[in-house]
Simulated scan of single mutants.
Amino acid sequence: MGKVIHGLDMFHTAIVTEDNQVGVTFGEVEPLLGAVNVSVNPTTERNSFYADNMLYAVLDSLGDIDMDMEAADLPFEMQKKIFGHKEKSGVQFANADDITAELAVGFRAKTSGGGYRFYWFLKGKPELLPIEHQTDEGNVTPQTAKLKLKFMPLQYNKNWKAQADSAQLKGLNWFEEVIYDESQLTETP
Results as ranks from 00 to 15, higher is better:
Asp64Ser: 06
Arg117His: 07
Leu33Pro: 04
Lys110Arg: 11
Pro75Val: 00
Asn20Gly: 04
Gly34Pro: 11
Asn41Asp: 03
Ile65Tyr: 09
Gln155Phe: 14
Gly23Val: 07
Ser39Trp: 00
Glu182Lys: 05
Pro153Tyr: 09
Leu55Ser: 01
Leu8Ser: 14
Phe49Leu: 04
Val24Ser: 08
Ala145Thr: 02
Phe151Thr: 00
Val91Phe: 07
Lys170Pro: 02
Ser39Gly: 03
Val105Cys: 13
Tyr180Asn: 04
Gln134Trp: 00
Gly7His: 11
Ala104Asp: 04
Ala94Asn: 06
Pro189Ala: 12
Thr25His: 10
Glu182Asp: 02
Gly2Trp: 07
Met152Val: 11
Phe175Val: 07
Asp73Met: 11
Glu70Lys: 15
Asp64Leu: 02
Asn20His: 06
Leu32Ala: 08
Gln134His: 03
Glu176Met: 09
Pro142Ile: 09
Tyr119Pro: 00
Pro153Cys: 05
Gln143Ala: 14
Ala35Ile: 15
Gln184Ile: 06
Lys110Pro: 03
Leu33Thr: 14
Ala101His: 04
Gly138Cys: 01
His85Arg: 13
Thr17Tyr: 11
Asp97Tyr: 07
Pro75Asn: 03
Thr43Phe: 03
Tyr116Asp: 11
His6Phe: 15
Tyr180Met: 02
Lys123Leu: 12
Ala71Lys: 08
Ala57Met: 11
Pro31Gly: 08
Gly106Glu: 14
Gln168Phe: 05
Asp66Ala: 09
Gly124Met: 13
Lys3Ile: 09
Phe151Cys: 05
Tyr50Val: 06
Leu32Pro: 13
Glu182Gln: 02
Gly2Ser: 13
Asn139Glu: 05
Asn20Trp: 07
Phe26Val: 03
Ala162Gln: 03
Gly63Gln: 08
Val4Asn: 15
Leu169Tyr: 01
His85Phe: 04
Phe49His: 05
Asp68Cys: 07
Met1Ile: 10
Arg108Lys: 15
Arg108Thr: 04
Pro126Trp: 13
Phe76Leu: 06
Gln21His: 11
Ile131Gly: 02
His133Cys: 05
Ser89Val: 02
Asp52Ser: 05
Lys125Trp: 08
Glu70Ala: 12
Tyr56Asp: 13
Met78Gly: 01
Gly138His: 00
Leu169Gly: 01
Pro153Lys: 14
Asp52Arg: 08
Leu122Tyr: 08
Leu59Thr: 14
Lys110Leu: 13
Gln143Met: 10
Gly27Trp: 11
Glu187Asn: 07
Asn139Cys: 00
Gly63Thr: 08
Gln168Leu: 09
Lys80Met: 02
Met1Lys: 09
Val178Lys: 14
Lys3His: 12
His6Gln: 13
Leu185Arg: 08
Ala104Tyr: 14
Ala72Trp: 14
Ala51Asn: 06
Thr111Ala: 12
Glu132Gly: 06
Asn37Thr: 05
Val105Glu: 08
Leu122Glu: 05
Thr25Glu: 13
Gly171Thr: 06
Glu182Met: 05
Asp9Thr: 11
Met1His: 09
Tyr156Glu: 01
Gly171Met: 05
Gly84Cys: 10
Tyr116Thr: 03
Ser183Val: 12
Ala104Phe: 15
Asp52His: 07
Met78Pro: 00
Val24Ile: 11
Gln21Glu: 15
Tyr156Gln: 07
Leu128Asp: 11
Ala94Gly: 09
Asp181His: 09
Glu102Asp: 10
Ala94Met: 01
Phe175Ile: 07
Ser48Gly: 05
Lys80Asn: 00
Lys81Val: 04
Ile99Asn: 08
Leu154His: 02
